[in-house]
Nucleic acid binder design. Structure first.
Lengths: 364, 364
DNA sequence: TGTGTATTGGAAACCGGTGTCAGTGACAAG
DNA sequence: CTTGTCACTGACACCGGTTTCCAATACACA
């Protein structure tokens, strides 16, 4: 019995082929005609309406598959008043980090009706907030994922609320309600990393900090201070050198720290790129890492494993966090996704990855 | 005289404010009503129609500014049958490269009505072509930028033509007509880089190749062979080690090359990531770069400048190429952009960046 | 037979723009 | 004074879906 309507449908398909060839793509009307239902019913199938006979649904889905029908996202967007685009808004200077986030997002969006649209923002530009407002209002995005450090800006979250755009903020600490954030535990992770140095016997440990105004930089610095305080080690201001998360600043900061007498035996750098700068500076002076200087970074970017010596660093599950954030964003669109989101955690643990850039300090 | 209609317009604006508050955003109808014209005329203003009275245009623009009207891209997309999204399609494993392309694209798209939508493709997946077709048909993109190595696939270009989606291919050699490609001169650039090694006195030069099937890998290898042939240096098969553009393959390849007796005094690696692997392997054996081994990479990713020693490499103007490609894509949309595109070149020169990873070979 | 419930259809309006084509007024030519 | 041309503008259908409202059908149950 089931095969007859099926074949009928196929036959009718070819009868109506002419109607489709105008645009080359079948419309909802074609599907309705072929399936012998109203377009309203097809719409119900597409939108997974619950009050729909199971047989009808199957039949319509069959036709949709046969015709290769794809609902026009533009038309849906217009009718529904929102589109199916998820924005990634960032002003992060680290390419690898951004790519990891993109990868995580796309993983979550894969096989959904959503697509990712990327919007870098120029931090420091006075019109940044207006630019973003313009972008959000114009595109009427379904939701946005806010990457650090821009995610730390509360004004942006308020803007999203005002405009009625869903948002999730990624951060190094709890920035918002569970629904609106995913966070890692930078402070604890850095504390543990610093403790590791202390346990190895290091006492003179330098810090290359991140830029002022970055929440992550603050958290990481606090974690560093926590560990020293817990161990009863004094932290003179001279042992802290300011960085801005970029390689060059790591170079400069390390030069300053390595000029100290006595020299630090270890340096914690608030990210890998600056840690590369630290190692670079050490090599330039003829120091050997880790014999003369132990170095720890943060992020576990590919460069960390690929440099020589391989860098001990803190791994931040960034792609996983981004994936989770994206799932939160699209939660509730279909029952499946809702269930997935219910299980989505908001807090993620960073862990220390031990490589060759750290050893016990040389005996003095 | 001019100030009167202006004030009138403003007054009317507030009269009609109520009509707008339904959605929070003014529509074309609001603008038309306030300006006292038809919505069609407003549409003409938006689309810069030439047959339009200058006074009318100014008046409508005034109202648009006053109301803060933003045309709904979804509605335009539906009416026009195409949207204002430019896709970036890639299957490139190198994060930095992808980010550079994104940056270049976004630069070109900045202040236009276009947005960037990113679509990674899974190379090797048998459904790749179908996935892409589905994506393009569904989203009705204005155009796509194809990154290498996927850009080398002619079937994809044909698919774009079939679907009626504009495309531009980025490549390491001329892949298509000027309108549809931007290319760099990898072969020449590698030839020059290899010559540089030869001029310094190197005679035993190893090659870490790129993956089979990549056009860029082939071009780079050819450039390498050109230089040796020109110099009358024999190239035994053992001096070529296969890589796949990833760090680990560079490590393995270098291990093989460094086992040779006599050892090569220099290695050209077809990208920076593998070059990092080469240096890594050399360091592991206690060799010093460049004293015991000179290394040259390709790409000039940030890692190149940041590693120790800083890597001599070939810089490929990737962001510039991507920018140019994006401008080609949106050429003809408005007169400005057309003019810009006319000047867009299709061929770009890669250049050798000399850093510390190369020196003359040690006297034997 | 009547009533309630679940499922589907039909018609029309709507989302916010764009294309077509006919209409308007001004002005020059006949 | 008419006619034709030109520059400009508006009415209306249309893009491909969704929604609303209501009616219709089928079926189960009392």
């Amino acid at each position: 019995m089931t095969s007859i309507p099926l074949r009928l449908a196929r036959t009718v398909t070819s009868d109506y082929a002419g109607a489709m060839e105008k645009t080359g793509q079948p419309t909802i009307n074609d599907v309705a005609r072929v399936a012998g239902v109203s377009k309203k019913t097809v719409s119900r199938v597409i939108n997974r309406s619950p009050l729909l006979n199971e047989d009808t649904r199957r039949r319509v889905e069959e036709v949709i598959g046969d015709l290769g029908y794809i609902p026009n996202p533009q038309a849906r967007a217009l009718a529904l008043g929102r589109n199916f685009l998820i924005g990634l808004v960032h002003d992060n200077p680290n390419a690898q980090t951004v790519m990891n986030v993109q990868q995580g997002m796309l993983e979550a969006l894969y096989d959904t009706e959503f697509e990712m649209i990327v919007r870098p923002l120029n931090r420091g530009s006075p019109t940044m907030l207006e630019d973003l407002r313009h972008f959000l209002e114009r595109q009427r995005l379904f939701g946005v994922l806010l990457m650090p450090p821009i995610s730390e800006n509360d004004a942006i979250a308020e803007l999203c609320v005002e405009i009625g755009c869903r948002y999730v903020r990624m951060g190094s600490t709890e920035l918002d309600t569970d629904e609106h954030m995913v966070a890692s535990n930078d402070r604890e992770a850095v504390r543990d990393a610093t403790r590791y140095l202390i346990e190895l016997g290091h006492r003179r440990i330098g810090l290359v900090s991140g830029p002022h105004g970055f929440r992550s930089a603050r958290e990481r610095r606090l974690g560093f201070e926590d560990a020293l305080r817990d161990a009863g080690i004094a932290l003179p201001r001279s042992m802290i050198a300011d960085g801005d998360y970029r390689f060059e600043s790591g170079l400069v900061a390390a030069d300053r720290l390595l000029d100290l007498v006595p020299r630090p035996t270890a340096i914690f750098s608030c990210n890998d790129e600056m840690a590369a700068g630290v190692i670079h500076a050490a090599c330039q002076r003829g120091l050997t890492v880790p014999r003369d200087l132990s170095v720890i970074g943060f992020d576990d970017t590919p460069i960390a494993a690929h440099m020589w010596p391989p860098l001990t660093t803190v791994r931040w599950p960034i792609a996983t966090m981004a994936r989770s954030a994206a799932l939160k964003l699209i939660a509730g669109v279909s029952s499946q996704e809702t269930e997935a989101a219910v299980a989505e955690p908001s807090l993620f643990r960073s862990t220390l990855i031990r490589r060759a850039s750290v050893s016990a300090p040389a005996a003095e």
